[in-house]
Design a protein around this nucleic acid. Structure first.
Lengths: 232, 232
DNA sequence: TGCTGCGATTGATAAATGTCAAACCTTCGT
DNA sequence: ACGAAGGTTTGACATTTATCAATCGCAGCA
């Protein structure tokens, strides 16, 4: 793998504390690949041969069952995905496709497991990462089970607002079709949900959202750190 | 903590490979406590002071938001819970209550973290356990998002049948009220769902289920290893 | 034995969500 | 500039799921 992205990857929590030697060894065995949009990188059920790192573009994780499909996450630079499958040497539970032209570093799972055994700092970082991912997944379950679709949308908007810097005006950064699937609703339902949030000060213009009555929206959404916070 | 349960706990994947010394050290710092039914052991948001091991009875993990409540998991002997919060030293995301008179071993989180650092085999086991839990949670998300409540019930019955040994006749082992919450439906809806499964050979008598047309039910449920299998 | 309380069921109704079809709009490539 | 493709919105309608109220039935207990 070329050198160019190494410093960025090295900065990830997952890799920042490991020894130089082990990091170089991981990188040495990896590939940097560029993919066009809409390429299915992983199909669920496949064995997990590589830990993936998105360094450019974006990748959607999704799942299929019985001819239905749902969006589970959208991975943006710089982050890894399918760490759990890699470590357990188990089949991937989700499929992955590029949403746009993307660059992905592929680290052979075998090397990840080998260096996990050799490098205590790396092992510690892996545990942190896994625990975080696990907790994020629990939060998603709570969001799904405890909230109506309207409430999920309202809270999503507040989270997205925060991610985008906190201003009253921000971009969705996701197609509405995909957002609908992510929030477990149909595009039609999402469209109507936006209208239902208008009384709470949500203005929609294409992918631009403006929140004109912040406290009204928060009052309706009732965000909870135990569901909506990234870090907790 | 008294000695009596140690051999059983030692057999758990999480503890079976660690050094004797470290295991004894963990146990030495732990408490065995007996709780009556319906005691709230943990309230979500609390800091995670102990890793819990249910050695007798059963414990429900559930979550609250906005005056609603949902059942997330039921823990039966012998298993641990809230490992992720313990490791991250983060607040618990779920509450826990005993369903019946139960005995629980409480291992101080601090000791778990300390010995994680000291014992590579324990660290490895923790990673396995976390990765498993993470994957189980992803499967739950897929189940929730991709299936209707009727399909969730049908697949639940097939899983429960397997857990109970695979015979045509088996017990639910859970109040229907709780099962409904676990499957994200109301008790009324669950009751009707059972009736809707009658054409597929599901007979209900109290908590006893008899599956008279196995292949019909499987045909309807379409279980997938990537959602329903324990081990994958 | 007969209460009592609570879970389970049933029926009627309401609310939430999905489906289908059509129209609209934006983007993109020729 | 034009047309095609596909995402978005809207309306009408169907289905799923929840809510409310009443009843049933069983387990625990005086």
């Amino acid at each position: 793998m070329p050198e160019s992205h190494r410093p960025d990857i090295r900065k990830l929590d997952l890799f920042s504390e490991m020894s130089d030697e082990n990091f170089q060894s991981l990188m040495h065995a990896s590939y940097l690949q560029t993919f066009p949009p809409q390429i299915e990188l992983i199909t669920e059920g496949d064995s997990s041969d590589f830990l993936h790192v998105v360094v450019d573009g974006s990748v959607e994780l999704f799942a299929r069952w019985n001819n239905r499909e749902t969006s589970v996450a959208i991975i943006r630079p710089i982050s890894t995905f399918i760490l759990a499958a890699t470590l357990r040497d188990a089949p991937n539970l989700m499929s992955a496709r590029t949403l746009e032209k993307s660059r992905v570093v592929l680290i052979p799972s075998e090397d990840v497991r080998r260096i996990f055994d050799a490098d205590n700092n790396f092992a510690r970082a892996i545990v942190c990462e896994l625990a975080s991912g696990y907790r994020a997944s629990i939060k998603k379950t709570k969001d799904l089970k405890l909230r109506t679709s309207l409430e999920r949308l309202a809270n999503y908007l507040l989270r997205q607002q925060t991610r985008e810097g906190g201003g009253a005006e921000f971009e969705l950064q996701t197609e509405k079709k995909r957002l609908a699937s992510y929030l477990n609703m149909t595009p039609e339902n999402l469209s109507r949900a936006f209208k239902s949030l208008k009384p709470y000060g949500v203005e929609v213009d294409g992918s631009k959202i403006t929140i004109t009555k912040q406290s009204d929206l928060e009052n309706f959404a009732r965000p909870s750190p135990l569901i909506d916070d990234k870090t907790v």
